[in-house]
Design a binder for these strands. Structure first.
Length: 474
RNA sequence: GGCGACGUAGCCAAGUGGUAAGGCAGAGGUCUGCAAAACCUUUAUGCGGCGGUUCGAAUCCGCCCGUCGCCUCCA
């Protein structure tokens, strides 16, 4: 049993063996902060959060860096359009993004470097590439010389000839090769810029990641992640420039790419304006709903967002969380008395669920398979309760569920109050006790009316043998 | 046009050679005053189509159809 991960570079699942057994380094490309981040960005953050959590569960220490691209054309344009300072704009969207992923229970990265805070390193990197002959300056711009790269198309599994074949972009005639890309861009009047050996300018998009990864994680990374749309050109360029810079190959041991979130017939994208923001999805209810939605399919495949699919995932989440409904009685967790058969069945499930879960996750983080393990456990917990399994065993089973769910970042024990106010409990309890008295004297019409009216207010009552529970429900 | 993926039930979605996980929705039942929840039973002789390889294919090969991504800023 060993963890296998699918690397885009090799195109197959490989046994996971980090450079160091002590610490895994993981660099994940973050957003360009010119607008609110959408749930596609959140999906990527959740995917790599699950990967990180699983590595930590397996005993690795993970050093995790996620960058913010905080200077580029779109940021400049947006700032001009809104007549705000570009720095104010990026600060706003960085904070919004961090608030969003906090709410989604994404663990904070070890470090969040920003392009504009790494200018010195970036200039040094570009200068070194020029010195080594892997880059050339042209009128204040600096381009990477693609001919200096080894196996340039390897990540995309495409030859240089094929890459050139479909070239539809207008080629800058000053470039030696159409595929050469900008490391440094000369500033136009009014743009944010920094002094450099080539005059005032700013970094190109790709070099920032190489410089930041090198500084914060070292010359070689275990894992480099991002959305599948970054494979080319961004990550291909990163490989080229990083390897030219450090001479260390491969730059990255495992390239992990998440499939893109589809919305309708296209990928969700800021430029296509067909997106749902993280903040919008958080308003829809339980923040773990999005995580559940993401976990429901393998991370490498595209995921199609629709309100219906999203809600279906939410109902599955409710099923898991119902096991931790605080209004239900599970008995004294130290009581070991119970029906022997029920105990044996539940005991077996508790013993088998963990290895099954690990086997699923070891197979390139197969979260749907892992979720199936959790649902099986839920089923056995309910069965065990109905069949009279001991409270101690039920407690152990529930703790196992919470723990394994936690490995995936699900907060199963947390009661979600997002859909209702938190201070109306005493009033609802008063209505419940009144209703109990009505039911005792068989005034069912009135009792049902109370239940129905509460339901319309978003409060669901459930009558059980041991009393009535309530919860917020949309 | 080139390259890379994908197409599994009403919906979402695992499964890469040995006879179709799981979730949502639906149906019947148990429980309940009723409802909900939970539990039980049930819902693909078939995995886009047509051929081929094999004792055996959703899984391998070929062709076709359809969808998506990348080739341009993108998680």
């Amino acid at each position: 049993m060993a963890l296998k991960v699918y690397s885009t570079l090799s195109g197959q699942k490989e046994e996971f063996k980090p450079f160091s057994e002590e610490q895994v380094t993981m660099y994940v490309c973050g957003p360009t902060v010119y607008d609110s981040s959408h749930i596609g960005h959140a999906m990527s953050a959740v995917v790599f959060d699950v990967i990180r959590r699983y590595l930590e569960f397996q005993g690795y220490k993970v050093r995790h860096a996620m960058n913010f691209t905080d200077v580029d054309d779109k940021i400049i344009n947006r700032a001009n359009k809104e007549e705000v300072d570009w720095h104010t704009l990026t600060e706003k969207y960085i904070n919004e993004f961090l608030e969003g992923i906090d709410a989604l229970n994404v663990q904070r990265a070890s470090v969040y470097p920003r392009a504009t805070e790494e200018i010195g390193n970036i200039i040094a990197a570009v200068a070194e590439l020029v010195e080594k002959g892997a880059a050339y300056p042209v009128e204040g711009d600096v381009y990477y010389r693609i001919s200096a790269a080894q196996e340039y198309g390897a990540l995309k599994h495409q030859s240089l000839e094929d890459l050139r074949a479909g070239e539809r972009v207008e080629v800058d005639s000053r470039k030696e090769n159409a595929l050469d890309f900008a490391l440094w861009k000369a500033a136009k009047p009014g743009e944010p810029s920094w002094e450099s050996p080539w005059g005032l300018g700013r970094p190109g998009w790709h070099i920032e990641c190489s410089a930041m990864a090198l500084r914060h994680l070292g010359a070689r990374l275990d894992i480099h992640g991002g959305g599948a749309d970054l494979i080319f050109p961004h990550h291909s360029n990163e490989i080229a420039q990083s390897e030219s810079l450090t001479g260390a190959r491969p730059f990255v041991k495992y390239w992990l790419h998440n499939g893109l979130l589809q919305f309708g017939s296209d990928k969700m994208s800021k430029s296509l304006k067909n997106f749902v923001t993280i903040q919008e999805i958080l308003k829809m209810g339980d923040p773990d709903n999005l995580r559940m939605f993401v976990l429901n399919s393998v991370y490498r495949n595209p995921l199609n967002y629709s309100p219906e699919n999203f809600e279906a995932a939410g109902r599955g989440l409710q099923r898991l969380k119902a096991v931790f409904d605080p209004t239900q009685q599970w008995g004294d967790p130290t009581a070991t008395q119970g029906n022997p058969e029920a105990n044996q069945t539940l005991q077996q499930e508790i013993e088998s669920v963990r290895p099954d879960f690990i086997e699923a996750m070891d197979d390139d983080f197969n979260s749907p398979q892992a979720m199936a393990c959790l649902f099986d456990l839920v089923k056995e917990i309910h069965k065990g309760r109905d069949a009279g399994a001991s409270p101690a065993l039920l407690h152990l089973a529930r703790e196992t569920l919470a723990e394994l769910g936690g490995v995936l970042g699900l907060r199963l024990k947390e009661v979600n109050h997002a859909t209702g106010p938190t201070d109306c409990g005493p009033f609802i309890n008063l209505l419940i006790s009144t209703r109990r008295e009505l039911r005792a004297v068989k005034q069912f019409a009135l009792a049902d009316k109370i239940r129905q009216n509460l339901k319309e207010l978003g409060v669901t009552l459930e009558d059980r043998a041991d009393g009535t529970s309530w919860k917020f429900e949309k």
